[in-house]
Design a protein around this nucleic acid. Structure first.
Length: 429
RNA sequence: GGAGGGAUGGCAGAGUGGUAAUGCAACGGAUUGCUAAUCCGUCAUGGGAUAAAACUCAUGCGGGGGUUCGAGUCCCCCUCCCUCCGCCA
């Protein structure tokens, strides 16, 4: 949500931000609406003032036993006018809010300009791509050869974009989640949270998925929504909060299932488990002082990178350009893991600084000792990491010519010491 | 699912139709100085005014409607929280 006072003060700057997002200037329309709203409000207030005075006099007159009919008639005649003005003030307000809540966050100054994915800027590549003396296969080949990745069974249960993992792959998924949460809580300073995955619409409004992106979400018949990411519950834990500045930053992590309708992704990544309706993800959320959020974004991205480093998966970090950033973000780093089977880097984490955009929607503030009043906090979120995609990366980077997969060393303690995942004889069907 | 209770400022908490008490915390100031106390003011949001204030007006008692000259207070609808009962992993 945008600050109307900022738009009033710096309309050019506001429009410049929108333009960088590829959007038309909105400040003329917004300011016109705002001026109209304020004029209406002022007129309304004058009438209310008169009504209040007259009403007070009626009270006095009645107490003194005087005649108050003239005053009563006057106020009654104001009534229709007041009601009409209230009505139009309210609808102007609603119109204004409707516009403001549909506009994305403005990009930070250092975000590269661009229209889409192709204009993202690579910052660094880390790790060494594995050199295979055979043709690298994609994860679904590897998984099906192992007999442990079952798309048919999943289709029978749930349809397309689901998977059933079995045996060592099911355990690998669990191992990844445990490893990531242990890393973030043990070394990266995050507090572990186990939140609901069903939330109210208010929570989704707070992080910005609603009202604009309802079609991407699953909704229950009794009006709960399935979270598309644990960013929603973790960030909204700060909804309505007033922190002491000393209690910031708040760093939270959670391993949850995430649910996405993938309404706009028809035909994209249909094969395999790259893009699913349901997937596990370890999420990191930070709530910071406004002066700290830029540094926190670097830190958080580093925390996500550390997961891949330890898993020995090569990756690169890109800064998303203005055209590829999500709705609530003012700056985003994507981490893309190297997938030898695809011969491509694919997104495995997205770390965003949302500034005070979400905090305004949630009314999340902090107070500094010695200062008057409160200010909005800044919020950040990042995957640390998406589990399904990490599993893909581990399979593709750890694959061997004989169809087995080498388990990264850091995961072995979570896998009962298992060093290699071997194909199973028969699928048990 | 059934029954009941509740929602008022940062927090606590009064207020049954006529200007939203009071306490705590916080901020500004005054005063006196033995780890502090005392006093005064400020202490929700928005409009107008202003360089910024002072100032001024309105709104604000969970949300939305209604009754009334006037609603925190009365009526209707809704939401959320709590308690008890039932069911349940």
């Amino acid at each position: 949500m945008h600050d109307l006072r900022f738009i009033r003060q710096s309309p050019e700057e506001f429009d410049r931000g929108l333009a960088r997002r590829g959007l038309a200037a909105m400040s003329p329309q917004i300011l016109a609406l705002d001026a109209k709203r304020r004029a209406t409000q002022t007129a309304l207030q004058d009438m209310l003032q008169r009504r209040n005075e007259a009403s007070k006099q009626v009270g006095l007159a009645k107490r003194n036993g005087d005649d108050a009919d003239a005053l009563i008639t006057e106020v009654q005649s104001l009534k229709d006018k007041i009601a009409a003005d209230e009505e139009s003030a309210k609808s102007l307000e609603a119109e204004l809010t409707g516009i403001l809540e549909g506009l994305p966050n403005l990009p930070a100054d250092d975000v590269p300009e661009g229209g889409g994915e192709d204009d993202n800027v690579e910052i660094r590549q880390v790790g060494t791509k594995p050199a295979f003396d055979f043709e690298a296969r994609e994860h679904f080949d590897i998984g099906e050869t192992l007999g442990l990745m079952d798309f048919e069974g999943a289709a029978a249960l749930s349809g397309a974009r689901f998977v059933v993992l079995r045996g060592a792959l099911a355990r690998l998924e669990r191992a990844l989640g445990n490893f990531m949460v242990d890393l973030h809580t043990g070394e990266n300073g995050f507090a572990e949270v186990s939140p609901p995955v069903l939330v109210r619409s208010e929570a989704l409004y707070g992080t910005g998925q609603l009202p604009k992106f309802a079609e991407d979400l699953y909704r229950t018949e009794d009006d709960y929504w399935l979270i598309p990411t644990a960013e929603v519950p973790l960030t909204n834990l700060s909804s309505g909060a007033i922190y002491d500045a000393g209690d910031l930053p708040q760093r939270l992590t959670a391993w949850t299932q995430c649910f996405r309708s993938e309404a706009g992704a028809a035909g994209k990544d249909t094969r395999g488990m790259l893009r699913q309706h349901q997937f596990g993800k370890v999420e990191m959320v930070c709530v910071t002082h406004p002066d700290e959020s830029d540094a926190e974004l670097e830190r958080m991205t580093g925390c996500a990178e550390e997961v891949l480093k330890r898993l020995e998966v090569p990756y690169r970090v890109v800064t998303l350009c203005t055209g590829d950033m999500g709705f609530g973000a003012r700056k985003t780093y994507d981490i893309e893991a190297w997938l030898p089977g695809q011969g491509m880097y694919r997104e495995i984490s997205s770390c965003s600084n949302c500034g005070e955009f979400q905090a305004r929607r949630m009314n999340a503030r902090f107070r500094t000792k010695g200062e008057k009043g409160t200010r909005f906090v800044n919020t950040l979120n990042g995957s640390g990491l998406a589990i399904g995609r990490t599993l893909i990366a581990v399979l593709e980077n750890g694959q061997n010519a004989d169809g087995t997969v080498t388990v990264p060393e850091v995961l072995r303690p979570y896998m009962g010491g298992l060093e290699r995942i071997e194909p199973v004889k028969g699928t048990g069907k």
